[in-house]
Write a protein that binds this DNA or RNA. Structure first.
Length: 600
RNA sequence: GCGGGCAUAGUUUAGUGGUAAAACUCCAGCCUUCCAAGCUGGCUAUGAGGGUUCGAUUCCCUCUGCCCGCUCCA
């Protein structure tokens, strides 16, 4: 992070605390790493963001419904989803270079290292046999650069002699993996062979479990039988309740289920302010679509993505690629509507090797934070992975019945059906699937049944709140009439999401007529939007205070309002705009409509 | 979890082995006819715990938190 970026970040953090956006959790007790609280302004901001997401994703559409599931679910949910396995990776630390190594990736990392490849060249191909003198020479020469902390390098003679001794006694390395462990061990100790650090050859500690899920127990007695987890993502509840929603909501594929809620992860390193927290809020949509094979049966073809394709409205013939692109487009429009335009966003199309095991394609929408360009939302095409896992683990049928599909299939001759199966088999040849499996799957399709595939736009609410704050933060130099320059700090938040929509001031507080009129204006607006009344200090100071919390409008009641300067201006007020600091005079009667037009 | 740096008021910064200083902010009052004006008064700090000492904010240890790097990020 550059120095300027760091200073900018510090100013944002400071403003957030000073003005009541974000506080450290449990601050008076010294704080708690990875947890944050939202103050009065932050609570409003977050609520506004949450509301705009919900409005856009569910209420504005007729094909998405909502869900609000419990945070703690049946523990098997997390076995089915794969979280129990992937969230508890054992890790080792190198005693010499202090780097962390995931145990399950150790061998893969080893294979990529220069020093292991260099040793491999000295071994008789296909065996573990080697000339001790050759390795000795390597340890005293080349190895010094490549693996400085390997036993073979630090103490070549001793290491080689005991390894040779072991081999003589028939207790030598059984395979390549073990060979490297032998070469990393100076003397056989009670603890056994040393596992070398892939980076430097040094000694790795024994693997220690890393539990990335928060664990608890349901019921008052703690035992192995009632372990449960705080959900690490909200998505799984949607899959788990998929059938109930389908049966109770009269929705038909394609349709989506949206959910906003807290999720918990024991992050190894919570960093960058609220960006990576251990407790955070997600806004997720699971949008269920027909598998491409079903689309093909119904429409005779599948519309695939091509550059410049029309994404404005869903088309029944769309395949998953089109739906994926469609949601990327929808989400981009949403971000723009809350003030995050493509100038501050970035996109990362994950490469095949980066994809999670369940994903066919993933796009990350990133925001240019001061501390780096980081992920706000991931939009994954997940296939039917989750539903099929839950179907398998729960033993419950989660397939949907599609009337249109059945009708389309009924029109096919047996010959056409066989052709369809042949084509499927041809397509999946590399996918390790037997012809019987393909035929069974096709048979279900012909009867109108399938597991829907899913497109998952998954956004982080806290990250988004931080992003809009970072994007809105601005300092500008303003010069007063006397020529004195000073810095104006202003949050240029989109009016839709600003915590306070409008502040109401009497020009002076020691004139009861002004105060009374301002209170009247306040009362007329309070029911319709979040407003703030202030009469303390000079008017300019009050404006600047509102600038700092991003209030888009200020209304001032002055002597014109109460008729002191003639009848034509009675009941008009000044409306002051945050970004331009321009003022205009408008009748109180028009105030509400003017504000609402800008805010909603 | 590892390594390095840091910790004094809301913020930014002084300072000391012997009563902790200032500016801005904030609050109250006065004043004030539109952009952080002025005057008066006020609140608020040595991150927590232990040790050395007659006495520790200062020296030592432990913990916590923050920043940077490693690592992780479905």
């Amino acid at each position: 992070m550059s120095k300027e970026a760091q200073q900018r970040m510090e100013k944002i953090v400071s403003l957030c605390k000073r003005r009541g956006f974000i506080f450290q959790s449990s601050e008076i007790y010294g704080g708690l790493n990875g947890f944050w609280d939202y103050g009065p302004m932050g609570a409003e901001l977050k609520r506004n963001l949450r509301d705009t997401w919900w409005q856009t994703m569910t209420r504005d559409r007729d094909d998405v419904v909502g869900l609000d599931a419990s945070i703690i679910m049946h523990p098997t949910v997390w076995t089915a989803s794969g979280h129990v396995d992937t969230f508890s990776d054992p890790m080792s630390t190198c005693k010499h270079c202090k780097k962390l190594v995931r145990s399950d990736q150790w061998w893969a990392m080893m294979a990529e290292q220069n020093w292991t490849q260099s040793i491999a060249e000295l071994i008789e191909p296909g065996t573990n046999r080697f000339q001790p003198a050759v390795l000795l020479k390597w340890g005293k020469g080349k190895g010094k650069q490549l693996a400085p902390n390997l036993a073979l390098v630090r103490n070549p003679d001793v290491t080689i002699s005991w390894v040779a001794e072991e081999i003589e006694k028939g207790r030598g390395p059984a395979d390549a993996t073990e060979l490297y462990k032998f070469l990393a061990t100076e003397q056989m100790a009670i603890t056994g062979l040393v596992t070398p650090c892939p980076h430097c050859g040094g000694e790795l500690t024994a693997p220690r479990p890393f539990n990335l899920m928060f664990r608890s127990h349901y019921g008052p007695v703690e035992s192995e039988d009632n372990i449960c987890y705080l959900r690490p993502e909200t998505a799984q509840a949607i899959f788990v309740q998929f059938k109930n929603v389908l049966d109770s909501s009269r929705v038909k594929v394609p349709f989506g289920i949206a959910q906003i809620g807290k999720a918990f992860r024991n992050e190894i390193t919570p960093r960058n302010y609220t960006f990576r927290s251990r407790e955070f809020e997600q806004m997720e949509l699971e949008f269920f679509i027909r598998p491409d094979d079903a689309v093909c049966l119904i429409h005779g073809h599948v519309e695939k993505w091509r550059e410049g394709a029309d994404l404005s409205a869903p088309n029944p013939a769309w395949g998953w690629e089109m739906w994926h692109r469609y949601w990327v487009d929808q989400r981009t429009k949403y971000y723009d509507s809350v003030g995050l335009g493509t100038d501050v966003l970035d996109y990362h199309w994950q490469k095949p090797e980066e994809l999670a095991h369940y994903a066919r394609a993933t796009v990350d929408i990133l925001f240019k934070f001061p501390f780096g360009t980081e992920e706000l939302e991931g939009i994954a095409a997940r296939g039917d992975f989750d539903l099929s896992q839950h179907q398998k683990f729960s033993g419950k049928q989660l397939e949907v019945f599609d009337e249109e599909l059945k009708a389309a299939a009924e029109k096919l001759s047996n010959e056409q059906k066989k052709e369809f199966i042949d084509e499927l088999f041809e397509d999946r040849k590399c996918a390790d699937t037997t012809r019987e499996e393909i035929a069974a799957y096709a048979d279900k399709l012909f009867k109108g049944f399938y597991l829907p595939h899913v497109i998952e736009p998954s956004a982080g609410l806290d990250r988004m709140a931080l992003a809009v704050l970072a994007a809105a933060f601005d300092e500008e130099t303003v010069t007063d009439e006397k020529g004195k320059a000073e810095t104006r700090t202003v949050l240029r938040l989109h009016p839709r999401i600003a915590p306070v929509k409008c502040a109401i001031f009497p020009l002076l507080k020691n004139r009861p007529e002004l105060v009374a009129k301002a209170r009247e204006v306040e009362a007329s607006l309070r029911r319709h939007m979040n407003i703030f009344y202030d009469e303390a200090g000079a008017i300019g100071r009050r404006y600047r205070r509102q600038d700092e919390i991003g209030t888009p409008f200020c209304v001032t009641v002055d002597f014109d309002t109460i008729g002191e300067n003639g009848p034509e201006k009675v009941d008009t007020v000044t409306l002051r705009h945050r970004d331009s600091m321009q003022q205009e005079r408008i009748p109180i009667a028009e105030l509400r409509a003017r504000l609402e037009a800008a805010i909603f």
